[in-house]
């Protein structure tokens, strides 16, 4: 279990912001930090990794103190046993895929982990290639594998899929789920893709202006009512067009634009750019033959 209680004054584009995080992450949990850019998600991750020093507070992993400003304890990143996947992947250009993984192993560590990871992330054909010759998705897989070589106590993922296109993102989400389950990892993901969060995480912390404003399971956080829907999709409102008696709302779901009929009262609180959930209850399904 990781207990976090930290404060840090950050200089943001619009003045300073007080980052103030209190939370607990249980062993084996998949938690996502969700929030606008500049809310302090990456800084939280960096503080956990030891790349940024908090002004005051504590971080403890089980019974080990990583940070305790009262007792002047600050464990260097080198001593924390963390897996970190950076936004730009940070693969070492001078090393091949295999060398990148080998570099991450600790002295005297069993090399079997590396062969296992190469197999699991399907990097077998790529292990002699240099990172700059790989596609974005392939680089991401290498970065993920590399972060796991040291068998980390916690895996930190900083918007790992943001730069990838939709199809590859879906595939990598499956990889992330697989490694999280297989290695019994504790994972903290930074993401603002609601679909991704719904698919991957056990719990979500919503970060607003440096503070966690809400915590909960993704379903509770992203839908105000509990729906016993069979189908539900998360999307973004693109257009709201009044037509005669009804109003047509265009919603971008993944990479499809879907038109949904709504009435006036439903649309009242909607604005263009809002995230919405499109759900259909099970009592009136439409069956559409596709083959």
């Amino acid at each position: 279990m990781i207990k976090i209680d930290i404060h840090k004054k950050l200089s943001a584009s619009d003045g300073t912001m007080n980052l103030c995080i209190q939370c607990q992450i249980e062993k084996g949990e998949f938690v996502t930090l969700y929030g606008e850019s500049g809310a302090g998600k990456t800084s939280t991750l960096r503080i956990l990794a030891g790349l940024l020093k908090p002004d005051k507070g504590e971080i403890t992993l089980d019974n080990t103190s990583w940070v305790d400003t009262k007792n002047k304890i600050f464990l260097a990143p080198q001593n924390r046993n963390i897996g970190y996947v950076f936004q730009d992947y940070a693969l070492f250009p001078n090393m091949t895929v295999l060398q990148n993984l080998e570099f991450a192993s600790k002295k005297g560590q069993d090399k079997k982990v590396i062969t296992d990871l190469i197999e699991m992330m399907e990097l077998g054909d790529l292990h002699n290639r240099k990172p700059q010759t790989l596609s974005g998705g392939q680089q991401q897989r290498v970065a993920l594998a590399r972060a796991l070589v040291c068998k980390p106590d916690i895996l930190l993922l900083d918007e790992p899929l943001a730069a990838l296109d939709y199809k590859i993102r879906l595939k990598l989400q499956d990889y992330i789920t697989r490694i999280h389950n297989e290695y019994g990892l504790t994972t903290l993901l930074v993401s603002h893709d609601i679909g991704e969060i719904m698919k991957l995480s056990d719990r979500v912390f919503v970060l607003e202006h440096g503070k966690i404003s809400r915590k909960g399971i993704p379903n509770e956080i992203f839908s105000n009512k509990k729906i016993s829907g069979k189908f539900k999709f998360i999307g973004e409102v693109l257009k709201i067009e009044p037509q005669d008696v009804v109003i047509v709302v265009s919603v971008l779901i993944q990479n499809n634009v879907v038109k949904v009929i709504a009435d006036k009262s439903e649309v009242q609180s909607l604005n263009i750019g809002d995230k919405v959930m499109v759900a259909s209850k099970a009592f009136n399904p439409i069956l559409y033959k596709i083959e």
């Binding site: 080198q78 963390i82 970190y84 070492f92 570099f103």
Partner: peptide
């Protein structure tokens, strides 16, 4: 991030 990645790996 190259330096940081290496640090996180304990180097």
């Amino acid at each position: 991030s190259l330096t940081e990645a290496s640090q996180v790996m304990g180097k």
